[in-house]
């Protein structure tokens, strides 16, 4: 399997009020051609920053270490025209479509802008391509939609416009950052189906960012779980649910209520999720981990292969298979104690 995208030991620091703040630490992941990789984690874990680093959309002054290779080129070294070409090949769709579209310009202008300015496509041809793209994402009467303004479209429809626009530059990789979070479940299913079709028809690779483990499990080939700026586990998506390798993944699985059965009581994770810069040394999950030992707190955890997956936990092999077992849960105390 040749990797289309290879991220190695990526660390990103942002300048915040005069000091550097680490927001992702040593992220490693790769995506093969046509593969969908899920990136799951709670807020502030660094999912969006990872996507931004890949698309080279980090805020000015960001310090980046490690490497990002896309289709063989070193992404972090790109500039000028090469960078623009890279961004055309890596399309991004964000959570809130309305925040990323100019409300006073028509859908057509928004969709065709980069085609016409970057690729010099004539207006009529750009319009036809935009209309085709809208059709591909299931929007009826595209000619009329192109003439409309963003406020005339519902959120779900606008998100499909964003996806269609992203597709116009014929990208190889789609970075979907919580692109269905603001949508109804039914609309979400619709958008997911469209992404799924596109992936099959075009051989598109995808980094699918979400906080919803079930969603990632259902539509991705593999899933990476992030905590406090680090990837703590990468596993086959369908296995993550039944056989998580990392205590945090297991805790996420258990904390979510289940639509098919009612739990007596949810197994909540004590404390709150943290970002990289506020994480403790040693295992970053240790303060919330029910399996933590003193050695966890004193040793930096490294991402190591385990079976077909990778996990950042020194006890992973020992705990293997027991993480979801309720009788093994050492405590469910203090779940209301917000650290």
């Amino acid at each position: 399997m040749s990797a289309l995208l290879e991220v190695r030991d990526l660390t990103v620091r942002l300048r915040v009020g005069g000091s550097d703040r680490e927001v992702i630490t040593g992220t490693t992941l790769e995506i093969a051609e046509g593969e969908a990789m899920g990136l799951v984690g709670e807020s502030g874990s660094g999912k969006s920053m990872t996507a931004k680093a890949i698309a080279r959309l980090l805020p000015a002054g960001a310090g980046v270490e490690g490497s990002v290779h896309f289709a063989g080129t070193d992404v972090l070294a790109l500039s000028g025209a090469d960078l623009r070409r890279h961004r055309a090949k890596v399309a991004v769709v964000f959570q809130d479509p309305r925040a990323h579209i100019n409300p006073v310009r028509r859908i057509e202008d928004f969709m065709t802008e980069s085609l016409r300015t970057l690729e010099d496509v004539p207006r009529a041809q750009a319009r036809t391509r935009a209309a085709d793209a809208l059709e591909e994402v299931g929007i009826d009467d595209p000619a009329r939609r192109l003439r409309q303004f963003p406020h005339e479209l519902s959120g779900g429809m606008l998100q499909r416009v964003m996806i269609a626009t992203a597709l116009l530059s014929r990208p190889l990789l789609l970075l979907a950052d919580e692109c269905t979070t603001a949508l109804d479940v039914t609309t979400q299913a619709e958008v997911m189906a469209i992404l799924d079709d596109l992936r099959r028809d075009r051989g598109l690779s995808m980094l699918f960012i979400t906080h919803d483990l079930e969603l990632a499990g259902a539509v991705c080939d593999r899933t990476s779980v992030m905590y406090a700026g680090q990837v703590v586990e990468t596993s086959a998506a369908d296995r993550l649910h039944a056989d998580p390798l990392h205590p945090y993944s297991a805790a996420l699985v258990q904390a979510r209520p289940d639509v098919t059965s009612t739990a007596e009581r949810l197994v909540a994770i004590p404390g709150r999720p943290v970002s990289a810069f506020e994480a403790p040394s040693g295992c970053r999950f240790a303060p919330r981990c029910p399996h933590a030992l003193d050695s966890c707190r004193s040793t930096e955890q490294v991402l190591t292969g385990l079976d077909a997956g990778r996990v950042r936990c020194e006890r992973a092999a020992t705990l293997r298979g027991r993480l979801l077992d309720p009788t093994e849960s050492p405590t469910e105390s203090e779940e209301t104690a917000d650290a």
Binding site: E42, S43, H211, L213, A251, L252, A255, R256, P257, L266, V267, A268, I269, P270, G271, R272, P273, R288, E335, T336, D338
Partner: peptide
């Protein structure tokens, strides 16, 4: 967040 949601529920 998922973990906080469980606490509040």
């Amino acid at each position: 967040d998922v973990s906080i949601q469980a606490q509040v529920l």
